[in-house]
Computed example of a mutant assay.
Amino acid sequence: MTPAARVQAAIDLLDAVIAAARGQGASADRIAAEWFRARRYVGSKDRRAIRELVWSAIRACGPVPVSGRAAMLRLAADDPAMRALFDGSTYGPAPIVADEAVAEGGIAPQWLVERLSASGLDADDQASLLDRAPLDIRANTLKISREELRVRLPVEAEPVMGPHALRLPSGTAAEAWPEFAEGLFEVQDAGSQMACMALHVQPGEAVVDLCAGAGGKTLVLGAAMANRGTLLACDIDRARLSRLPERAARAGVLVETRLLNPGQELAMLDDWQGRADAVMIDAPCSGTGTWRRNPEARWRIDAKAIDRYCAMQANVLTIGAALVRPGGRLTYVVCSLLDAEGADRIAAFLAANPDWEPVLPPLPAGRPHRQGWRLVPFRDRTDGFFFATLVRRVN
């Protein structure tokens, strides 16, 4: 493909991504995969170049662009060489005309920028949310140590914060390695690993991962428990939870799974009420801390969605708290940096539940944020997280 044809292909793909964002459709990754699958004639170099253009344009636009062409014109605004590719050549984009729509730049839609600022994120913090994310893995200590794994890997791996995290070059196809098939590691952001450290589970404990999803954090907890004790992973999403048994078998983690019916969670967990030593609540959220991986996600959020997430977060906190024994603890986690979903939720819970108190476990990165802990890409080189560990007082 010519450079101009690559630009036009990126515009076409961006149109599909923008339409999906407006309609709450498939992710950009999925759309791109399907788009290229339908165009097998596009070579690997062209695919990489087109994907680079698409994701660069997504990062360059703040609000949702009116079109893929407007998004690409935003990317080309300060790039004369790219503007020259709008030349009307065969398979290339039409020439630029006067007063043509150019997408607005910025970090996110203005209302969302204002909420990030109100949550204590300065300009550098906000800009870092759109950086390119590295690839982190977690050594599975049920099978291997971090240093032993590092020696075995076919690429250079950098130890990063926490005792089990390694950082690989971006784009590494780590899940194709035999070490992954052997269950020696999982792909997981170092910040996510650190959130699990905050719960400080121990061998022999009774532990619940309440919003387990596909089980990324469940596997961390199981390794920390050394398969001694009882580990229960729950979720209301059958498709996601169904992926956990295979992952757990590969990792050698002993875990029970339980599919919950929405609205009936407490009844279906009656045998666990007041029994758990530790509960992990990886709450549903807007994902503002993961824009490095899914930059188009900021086009899918609106204020009503934030309110819905807050209601869900309050609900899972209530459910999780009911499972904890006196003297036990829970860790509440969101991969969002909006206070409405993080610090405000914890403050509201503590105000309504005086028999709980926050603790700040020592961690190798991040900093305290109100009654919890915050990780920000700019300072901590992880995805963005807020988490808080709470202990139920013994009366």
Rank of each mutant, 00 (worst) to 15 (best):
P3V: 04
R6K: 14
A10E: 04
L13I: 02
D15Y: 13
A16T: 07
A16S: 14
A16Q: 15
Q24S: 14
D29R: 14
A32P: 00
A33Q: 13
R40M: 07
K45S: 14
D46G: 07
D46L: 05
R48N: 12
S56Q: 14
R59I: 09
A60Q: 14
A60D: 12
C61L: 04
C61S: 12
P65V: 09
V66L: 03
R74K: 13
R74D: 04
D78E: 15
M82W: 00
R83G: 14
A84S: 13
L85P: 02
F86N: 09
D87N: 15
G88Y: 06
S89V: 13
S89I: 09
T90D: 15
Y91H: 12
P93W: 11
A94P: 02
I96R: 11
I96M: 14
V102K: 02
A103D: 07
G105C: 03
G106A: 10
L121G: 08
D124C: 10
D125G: 15
S128A: 15
R138N: 10
N140T: 03
N140R: 05
S145P: 06
V151A: 15
R152N: 03
L153R: 08
E156H: 10
E156I: 11
P159T: 13
V160S: 02
H164K: 10
S170T: 15
A173L: 11
W177I: 04
F180P: 02
E182S: 03
Q188P: 01
A190R: 04
G191A: 04
Q193D: 14
Q193E: 14
M194Q: 05
A195W: 03
C196N: 05
L199T: 12
H200A: 15
V201A: 07
Q202Y: 09
V207K: 07
L210R: 08
G213P: 01
G213D: 03
A214Y: 08
G215H: 14
T218R: 06
L219D: 08
V220A: 15
L221I: 11
G222L: 07
A224N: 12
A226P: 03
R228Q: 12
D235I: 09
S242I: 00
S242F: 01
R243N: 06
V253W: 00
V255N: 04
E256I: 03
L260W: 05
N261V: 11
E265Y: 09
A267E: 03
L269V: 01
D270N: 08
W272H: 07
R275V: 12
D277I: 00
A278M: 01
A283P: 07
C285Q: 08
S286C: 06
T290M: 06
W291H: 04
R292Y: 01
N294T: 13
W299H: 07
W299I: 09
I301H: 10
D302W: 05
D302F: 05
I306K: 02
D307L: 04
R308C: 02
Q313C: 03
G320Y: 04
A322C: 11
V324I: 09
G328I: 10
V333R: 10
A352D: 13
P358Y: 10
P358A: 12
L360C: 08
P361N: 07
L363D: 06
P364G: 07
A365W: 01
G366E: 06
R367Y: 08
G372S: 05
R379G: 11
R379C: 05
D380N: 10
F386E: 03
F386T: 06
R392F: 10
